[in-house]
Amino acid sequence: MKTRIYVTLKNGVLDPQGKAIHHALEGLGFSGVNDVRAGKLIELDLADGVPTEEIEAMCTKLLANTVIENFRIEKAA
């Protein structure tokens, strides 16, 4: 079972990487970008029947640092 974990910085946490990407986009002439936030996508190939709580535990124990990051779990069909 393919499962995607999206890890993003919490609101209010400064994202220097996103800022640099924003500047680079502006440098390329893309003037319509208001803001850029960079995050991570982690793809898990899970055995059938792994419960959601266990995936959440994977996120809180390792995949995301919940001091600064949020995560979202997306199970593929």
Binding site: V13, L14, P16, Q17, A20, N65, V67, I68
Partner: peptide
């Protein structure tokens, strides 16, 4: 130490990259 939670907070990428 911050990643284990023994100390609070987090150390992020330097602001100047």
């Amino acid at each position: 130490l911050t990643e284990t939670g023994i100390l609070p907070g987090a150390l992020m990428r330097n602001a100047g990259l």
